[in-house]
Deep mutational scan, measured.
Amino acid sequence: NQASVVANQLIPINTALTLVMMRSEVVTPVGIPAEDIPRLVGMQVNRAVPLGTTLMPDMVKGYA
């Protein structure tokens, strides 16, 4: 099963992502693939992302 990117903490709206904010986990539904974590660093979320939430492509500005 493919691992997805999951929020390791509450990520406030418009926050630029850092490695410490994300972890990989096998979840359903599948979100952004864990191998894209390096690409996500520095990108901003367009909404608040609660701890444990799977990051979906539409949550990250410029990802989709």
Results as ranks from 00 to 15, higher is better:
Ser24Ala: 08
Asp36Met: 10
Glu35Asp: 05
Ala48Trp: 02
Pro33Tyr: 12
Gln2Glu: 15
Ser24Gln: 13
Ile32Trp: 02
Val27Phe: 03
Ala48Gly: 09
Val45Trp: 00
Thr15Glu: 05
Val26Asn: 08
Leu51Gln: 15
Val20Ser: 06
Glu35Gln: 08
Pro12Phe: 11
Val26Arg: 01
Thr18Ser: 12
Tyr63Pro: 05
Asp36Cys: 14
Val5Leu: 05
Gly42Gln: 06
Val5Thr: 14
Gly52Asp: 11
Thr15Pro: 01
Glu25Arg: 02
Ser24Gly: 12
Gly62Val: 02
Val6Trp: 03
Gln2Phe: 13
Met59Val: 04
Asn46Val: 13
Thr18Trp: 06
Ile11Lys: 00
Asn1Ser: 15
Asp58Arg: 03
Gly31Trp: 02
Glu35His: 09
Lys61Thr: 10
Ile13Cys: 03
Ala34Lys: 05
Val49Glu: 01
Val6Leu: 13
Thr53Asp: 12
Val27Ile: 04
Ala64Lys: 14
Val20Met: 14
Gln44Thr: 11
Asn8Pro: 03
Asn46Thr: 10
Ala7Gly: 06
Leu17Glu: 01
Val6Met: 15
Val60Cys: 02
Met22Gln: 03
Ala7Trp: 00
Thr18Val: 04
Asn8Glu: 12
Leu55Tyr: 01
Leu19Ser: 11
Gln9Tyr: 10
Thr54Asn: 03
Met56Glu: 08
Gln9Val: 11
Val41Met: 06
Leu19Arg: 15
Asn14Tyr: 06
Pro29Ile: 14
Asp36Tyr: 06
Ile11Ala: 02
Thr54Val: 05
Thr28Pro: 03
Asp58Trp: 06
Pro50Met: 11
Tyr63Lys: 03
Gln9Gly: 08
Arg39Tyr: 13
Leu17Arg: 00
Thr15Asp: 05
Met59Cys: 04
Met56Lys: 09
Asn1Gln: 15
Ser4Cys: 02
Val30Glu: 15
Thr54Leu: 09
Glu25Ala: 08
Ala16Ile: 06
Pro33Glu: 04
Met22Gly: 00
Met43Phe: 07
Pro33Ala: 15
Val30Met: 06
Ala64Pro: 12
Pro33Gly: 08
Leu51Asp: 11
Gly31Asp: 00
Pro12His: 11
Leu19Asn: 06
Gly52Tyr: 10
Val49Tyr: 01
Arg47Gly: 08
Ile37His: 04
Ile13Thr: 10
Ser24Thr: 08
Met43His: 11
Ala3Lys: 03
Lys61Phe: 04
Gln2Lys: 02
Ala48Gln: 10
Pro33Met: 10
Ala48Ser: 07
Leu40His: 01
Met56His: 14
Gly42Leu: 02
Pro38Glu: 10
Arg47Asn: 08
Leu10Asn: 04
Ile13Glu: 09
Glu35Ser: 08
Ser4Asn: 02
Ala34Ile: 14
Lys61Glu: 08
Asn8Lys: 14
Pro33Trp: 10
Ile32Gln: 01
Lys61Met: 08
Val20Thr: 12
Asn46Gly: 09
Asn8Met: 09
Val60Ser: 01
Pro29Ser: 10
Pro57Thr: 14
Gln44Gly: 08
Gln44Ser: 09
Gly42Tyr: 05
Val49Phe: 02
Gly62Ala: 05
Ala3Glu: 15
Gln9Ser: 12
Val6Ser: 04
Ala16Asp: 05
Val41Lys: 06
Ile32Tyr: 02
Met22Tyr: 02
Asn1Ala: 15
Ala16Ser: 10
Gly62Arg: 06
Gln2Trp: 06
Ala16Tyr: 06
Pro33His: 12
Tyr63Thr: 07
Pro57Ile: 04
Ile13Gly: 04
Asp58Ala: 09
Leu10Ala: 13
Val41Arg: 05
Arg23Val: 14
Met43Gly: 09
Leu17Asp: 01
Ser24Phe: 05
Met56Val: 12
Pro33Ile: 11
Gln9Asn: 08
Val27Lys: 06
Leu40Met: 12
Leu51Thr: 13
Leu19Val: 10
Gly31Gln: 06
Val20Tyr: 09
Val45Phe: 01
Leu51Ile: 10
Pro57Phe: 03
Ile13Asp: 04
Tyr63Ser: 06
Gly31Val: 03
Gln2Tyr: 06
Pro12Gly: 09
Met21Ser: 09
Leu55Gln: 00
Leu17Met: 08
Ala16His: 09
Gln44Lys: 05
Gln44Ile: 11
Ile37Trp: 02
Val30Gln: 11
Val6Thr: 15
Met21Tyr: 06
Met59Ile: 09
Pro57Glu: 05
Thr54Ile: 10
Arg47Ala: 14
Ile11Gln: 01
Val41Ile: 13
Ile37Arg: 07
Asp58Asn: 06
Ile13Trp: 03
Val5Met: 02
Leu40Lys: 00
Leu55Lys: 01
Asn46Met: 09
Glu35Arg: 02
Val41His: 10
Asn8Gln: 12
Ile32Cys: 15
Ser4Trp: 07
Val27Gly: 03
Tyr63Leu: 12
Gly62Trp: 06
Ile11Cys: 02
Tyr63Val: 04
Glu25Val: 02
Val60Met: 14
Met21Ala: 04
Leu40Gly: 00
Leu40Phe: 03
Arg23Gln: 12
Val6Pro: 01
Val45Gln: 01
Ala7Met: 08
Val45His: 00
Asn1Tyr: 13
Arg47Lys: 12
Arg23His: 12
Val27Asp: 11
Met21Gln: 10
Leu19Pro: 11
Arg23Phe: 09
Pro38Arg: 05
Asp36Gln: 09
Val60Thr: 02
Ala34Phe: 05
Tyr63Glu: 08
Ala3Ile: 10
Ile32Phe: 03
Pro33Leu: 10
Lys61Tyr: 10
Leu10Met: 10
Ala34Asn: 09
Asn14Glu: 08
Ile32Thr: 03
Val49Asp: 00
Val41Gly: 10
Val26Gly: 14
Glu25Thr: 04
Met43Thr: 09
Gln44Asp: 08
Ser24Arg: 03
Val30Leu: 07
Val30Pro: 13
Asn1Met: 15
Val27Ala: 10
Val20Pro: 08
Gly31Met: 05
Ala3Val: 10
Gln2Met: 10
Ser4Arg: 02
Asn1His: 06
Ala7Glu: 00
Asp58Met: 07
Ala16Pro: 11
Met43Ile: 08
Ile32Gly: 00
Arg47Pro: 03
Pro57Arg: 08
Met56Leu: 13
Pro50Ala: 15
Asp58Pro: 09
Met22His: 00
Leu10Phe: 08
Ile11Asn: 00
Asn46Ile: 13
Ile32His: 01
Gln44Arg: 04
Gly62Phe: 04
Ala7His: 01
Ala64Ser: 14
Met22Asp: 01
Gly31Glu: 02
Val26Tyr: 08
Pro38Thr: 03
Val30Ala: 08
Glu35Tyr: 04
Val41Trp: 04
Thr28Phe: 03
Ser24Pro: 13
Ala3Gln: 05
Leu55Glu: 00
Gly62Asn: 09
Gln44Ala: 14
Gly31Phe: 02
Val60Asn: 01
Val6Phe: 05
Gly31Asn: 01
Val41Thr: 07
Pro29Lys: 06
Tyr63Trp: 13
Gly31Arg: 04
